[in-house]
Amino acid sequence: MRKIYQDYLIRDWQESDRTAAARVIEQVLQEYGLPWQPREADLDVIEVESAYLNVGGQFWVVEHHGKIVGTAAYYPIKRGNKGVEIRKMYLIPEVRGQGLGKYLLQELETVIAAQGYQEIWIETASLLKEAVQLYETNGYQRTTGVETQRCDRVYFKILSI
Rank of each mutant, 00 (worst) to 15 (best):
Q118H: 05
S160G: 14
I46F: 04
P38T: 06
M1D: 05
I112T: 12
V28Q: 00
A125K: 02
Q149P: 01
L9G: 01
V28A: 01
Q149M: 09
E31D: 15
K129H: 08
E63A: 10
E94T: 12
I10V: 15
P38N: 12
Y74G: 10
D17Q: 11
R87E: 13
Y103N: 09
M89L: 15
Y5G: 02
D17F: 00
V45R: 07
Q141Y: 04
E15L: 12
H64D: 06
V28I: 14
A73E: 04
L128C: 02
I68M: 08
Y5A: 07
V55S: 05
A51R: 09
I68E: 07
F59N: 01
R23H: 14
Y155H: 09
E40N: 15
K78Y: 09
E136T: 08
L100H: 13
R2T: 07
N81I: 04
R23T: 15
I10R: 06
T144W: 01
R23Q: 15
A72F: 09
L128P: 01
D152C: 10
I120T: 03
K3V: 04
G83W: 10
Q6N: 13
G83L: 08
P93S: 06
K3F: 08
I10G: 11
T71H: 01
P38L: 00
A21N: 04
N138K: 01
W121P: 00
L91G: 08
E31G: 07
S126A: 03
H64P: 07
Q58R: 09
Y117F: 08
A22G: 12
I4W: 06
T137K: 04
E49N: 08
A22N: 14
I77E: 11
V154H: 07
Q37S: 14
T124Q: 02
Y5F: 15
F59K: 01
V28T: 10
R79M: 05
T19H: 14
P76M: 02
G56S: 11
Y74H: 04
Q106L: 07
A113P: 00
F156K: 13
L134H: 03
T110I: 05
R39H: 15
N138V: 05
Q106E: 12
K88Q: 09
Y155D: 02
Q141M: 06
L91E: 08
Y75L: 05
T148P: 00
Y117R: 00
I122E: 00
Y90L: 02
N54C: 06
K82R: 13
K129G: 00
E31Y: 13
Q118W: 01
I86L: 06
Q30Y: 11
G80K: 04
V111L: 03
G33Q: 07
H65N: 09
C151H: 06
G99L: 14
E119T: 13
V61N: 04
R96D: 06
Q14E: 15
Q37H: 13
T143Q: 10
L53D: 02
R18M: 12
Q118A: 07
D7F: 07
K102G: 08
A125N: 14
D152P: 08
I161E: 15
D152V: 07
V48A: 03
D12I: 08
I4D: 10
Y32E: 13
Y32I: 11
V55W: 02
G56T: 05
Y135S: 04
Y90K: 05
H64T: 03
K88E: 03
L29G: 13
L108P: 00
